[in-house]
Amino acid sequence: MPSSSSSRQGSQNNAVQGTPWQDRLIEACREYEIQEPDFQLVSDRRGGRTAWSCVVTVYERRIEARFWYDGRNIVNAREDAAEVALKWLTSNPNLISGW
């Protein structure tokens, strides 16, 4: 069973270098005037190793990353989830009131 750990990215951490999808998603949330995304890392024990992925909540919708990653690549899991979420959010602008 996958376990999870919350990993919120606050406003002061938005400029983390190498996180273009997360940065773009946070900016889109600001433009739409909705709550910033909430990133949650999830892990799954696979034999002697642990695989990591990410779920991001945007506009009250949980959006999962497409892939699982090695522990050294957790930032990739967050980027994957942010990319999926950004594409969902920007392809559904009618969901946001006032848009």
Rank of each mutant, 00 (worst) to 15 (best):
R45D: 14
R45L: 13
R46A: 11
R46G: 05
R46M: 07
G47S: 02
G47T: 03
G47H: 00
G48S: 14
G48P: 02
G48A: 11
G48C: 07
G48H: 11
G48W: 07
R49H: 13
R49E: 14
R49N: 14
R49C: 08
R49F: 09
R49L: 10
T50W: 03
A51N: 05
A51G: 11
A51E: 06
W52C: 02
W52I: 04
W52A: 01
S53Y: 05
S53P: 07
V55M: 12
V55L: 15
V55T: 15
V56L: 14
V56K: 08
V56D: 08
T57M: 10
T57L: 04
V58G: 01
V58F: 06
V58Y: 05
V58C: 10
Y59G: 02
E60F: 09
E60R: 10
R61S: 03
R61T: 12
R61C: 06
R61P: 00
R62F: 03
R62S: 12
R62N: 09
R62L: 07
I63F: 06
I63M: 08
I63K: 02
E64V: 04
E64T: 06
E64P: 04
E64K: 07
A65Q: 02
R66V: 02
R66Q: 12
R66E: 09
F67A: 13
F67M: 09
F67Y: 08
D70F: 07
D70R: 04
D70G: 01
D70C: 05
G71E: 14
G71I: 01
G71F: 01
G71Y: 01
R72H: 05
R72Y: 01
R72T: 00
R72A: 00
N73I: 00
I74N: 03
I74G: 01
I74E: 08
V75M: 02
V75A: 06
V75K: 06
N76D: 08
N76E: 09
N76R: 05
A77I: 06
A77M: 07
A77K: 01
R78P: 03
R78T: 09
R78V: 07
E79I: 03
E79Y: 03
E79F: 05
E79P: 03
E79C: 06
E79T: 06
E79S: 08
E79R: 05
D80P: 03
D80K: 02
D80A: 11
A81L: 07
A81R: 00
E83Q: 14
E83R: 15
E83G: 09
E83V: 05
E83D: 12
V84E: 04
V84T: 13
V84R: 01
V84M: 07
A85N: 10
A85K: 10
A85F: 09
A85C: 14
A85T: 13
L86S: 08
L86C: 09
L86K: 11
L86D: 11
K87Y: 11
K87G: 11
K87L: 15
K87T: 14
W88M: 10
W88V: 11
L89F: 01
L89A: 05
L89H: 02
T90P: 02
T90W: 04
T90L: 15
T90V: 15
S91P: 04
S91G: 09
S91V: 03
N92K: 02
N92L: 05
N92I: 05
N92F: 04
P93M: 15
P93K: 15
P93G: 12
N94Q: 13
N94C: 08
N94H: 13
L95M: 15
L95E: 12
L95T: 11
I96M: 13
I96V: 15
S97I: 09
S97A: 13
S97M: 07
